[in-house]
Design a protein around this nucleic acid. Structure first.
Length: 345
DNA sequence: TATCTTGAGGTTGTTACTTCA
DNA sequence: GATGAAGTAACAACCTCAAGA
């Protein structure tokens, strides 16, 4: 849209001012990109090389993962790779994927260039270095995809009739899509030069490349969101079950309290228990056993029950099970997390 | 024919830059 | 010359539509 408008202005011959503006804009863009490169590029984030670790994707949750024992879904999946790339900015603006910068700069008049010129440019690219990937899309454009046999509509057909009000659906060829996919794996966002280079290489308009990347990012993110949602659902179910179990356990402990009222003379707050080692200590009995430890947030497994931090030999020798030999008594859940620090009671 | 995929248009918010008082 | 407001451009994100498989 913006490109088309700019090109239109250029085409109307307001050359001097517009070109100066464009130069300034380009300069500003370069500066901005250079800044981004400085900000993010120290680790080569999002550059043309391999992407860095994910920058987003619900970073609060992975910390929960080890506790829940649920693996985060497919961290190295393609969608994640894409998301990683999409969330890290700062490309090397001086590097084009496989076209020379000069070639990319020459493509600045991209929209005015006809199909023939684009084809010539594409074929004359000094380094169509997409490996074994077919890059001569200009030939396939007019005659349909060579291998697929599916004579998809030539996307260049829309170059001349952009003014038309009807929205035209143009399918990219398999080769074009595959090449865009490869580029997206490298970097999920494009700077103008990369966009131009890619457009030129694929014999597409830069706007088409831009739109393709926008849609790709959006749909990748959507897919990742669905995966994350599924995972969070599982986490929620696990936590709900855990909560239910703990509530039941708490109810049992309260029932034990009423069954053995002799123990009630102790202040409730002085009774502390380590859920993992099943030892009970009271502050009044062993004040040194619970030093003024920093108030650490109790884990879900010990919420409401103070845990003792002193060494077992300094605690009451009797275990919780020994104190209450009621049939109701049973060992605490074996998966209760050991609490090395006792919260201040 | 229904459904899904995907190219594309439009809107909004953000960021960076330039111009001007 | 420094500074802040206003204007502008580019872009990402999002929503939506619609063509085509």
């Amino acid at each position: 849209m913006a490109d088309a408008g700019r090109d239109l202005v250029l085409g109307l011959g307001m050359g001097v001012v517009v070109r100066r503006d464009e130069e300034e804009a380009e300069r500003g863009r370069r500066d901005r990109d250079a800044r981004r490169e400085l900000e993010f590029g120290t680790g080569r984030c999002g550059g043309w090389s391999s992407p860095e670790p994910p920058a987003v994707r619900l970073t609060l949750l992975p910390g929960l993962v080890p506790h829940l024992g649920l693996p985060w879904p497919s961290p190295s999946s393609e969608t994640n790779r894409h998301l990683e790339a999409s969330t890290t900015r700062g490309f090397d603006v001086n590097r084009a994927p496989s076209l020379s910068v000069a070639g990319a700069a020459a493509a600045a008049e991209e929209d005015e260039a006809g199909a023939a010129a684009a084809a010539a440019a594409a074929s004359s690219s000094p380094n169509n270095s997409a490996g074994s990937f077919p890059t001569d899309f200009s030939s396939a454009q007019g005659q349909g995809a060579p291998g697929g046999g599916a004579d998809r509509a030539c996307s260049r057909a829309s170059d001349d009739d952009d003014g038309g009000s009807a929205r035209k659906k143009l399918r990219l060829s398999k080769e074009q899509s595959a090449f865009l996919e490869e580029s997206f794996k490298e970097h999920a966002t494009l700077n103008p030069k990369q966009k131009l280079a890619l457009a030129k290489q694929l014999n597409l308009r830069p706007r088409q490349v831009e739109v393709w990347f926008q849609n790709r990012r959006a749909r990748t993110k959507l897919k990742q969101t669905e995966v994350d949602c599924e995972y969070l659902k599982r986490c929620c179910e696990t936590l709900t079950e855990e909560n239910r179990r703990l509530q039941k356990e708490l109810a049992e402990l309260r029932a034990l309290k009423t069954v053995h009222p002799f123990y009630m003379h102790l202040p409730a707050t002085t009774l502390s228990m380590c859920p993992s080692c099943e030892r009970v200590a009271s502050n009044s009995a062993a004040p040194a056993a619970a030093p003024a430890a920093p108030a650490s947030s109790p884990s879900p497994a010990t919420t409401g029950i103070a845990a003792a931090s002193a060494p077992p030999e300094q605690q009451r020798p009797s275990s919780f099970a020994a104190l209450f030999s009621s049939p109701l008594n049973r060992p605490l859940a074996s998966h209760a997390q050991p609490q090395p620090q006792a919260p201040t009671s």
